[in-house]
């Protein structure tokens, strides 16, 4: 983590985006068709539904060094499968509140709802998240060895 500032300049930012097939993936497509300008940091993985999201996918991405993880799906009540995103939002909210406890920056993970027609909103979401991640800088990942750790009287 000491090399944080050096690393800032070293490599490009990579954001993993998990987008649901029916809404946000279409929304991203709409944004592209409408030629809205978007940052290029996002790598999109298409998923059938945000209900498919296992919080572990987000954790694994962050541990493996993704600088940010964005999950986007249909608006609640608009899920193609009726209820997939209702399950998802509970799981993702629990994860978002849990990440800082383990020492992860919770700002590196965001979930949002964008429909297939909302190209403009998609542009805002991506631009805003991308700016956040640039502000945070590259994800330093985990330390592979720990020389000294803080004392905690957890016991």
């Amino acid at each position: 983590m000491s090399s944080k500032s050096d690393a800032k300049q070293e490599r490009e930012i990579k954001i993993v985006g998990f987008l649901c097939n029916w809404c946000s993936y279409g929304g991203a497509d709409t944004a592209g068709v409408c030629r809205f300008r978007q940052p290029t940091d996002l790598r999109i993985i298409r998923i059938p539904c945000t209900g498919r999201i296992d919080p572990l996918m987000i954790v694994k991405s962050l541990i493996q060094g993704a600088d940010g993880v964005l999950v986007s799906g249909c608006h609640p009540n608009d899920c193609h499968y009726a209820v997939g995103n209702f399950y998802a939002r509970r799981r993702m909210e629990v994860l978002k509140r849990f990440l800082p406890y383990m020492g992860f920056q919770s700002d590196r993970f965001r979930y949002t709802w964008v429909s297939a027609s909302e190209g403009q909103i998609w542009q805002q979401v991506v631009t805003d998240f991308s700016e956040t991640i640039h502000r945070l800088g590259p994800n330093p990942g985990l330390h592979q060895t720990v020389d000294s750790a803080p004392a905690v009287s957890w016991f």
């Binding site: 983590m1 020492g103 992860f104 060895t145 720990v146 750790a149 905690v152 009287s153």
Partner: peptide, 23 residues
């Protein structure tokens, strides 16, 4: 109380604490 003790640490220290434990 135990959870509170961990939460009292800064974000960086929390990561170090868990890494040190889980290592």
């Amino acid at each position: 109380p135990s959870v509170a003790a961990v939460e009292a640490l800064s974000l960086e220290d929390r990561l170090l604490f868990w890494e040190n434990q889980l290592d």
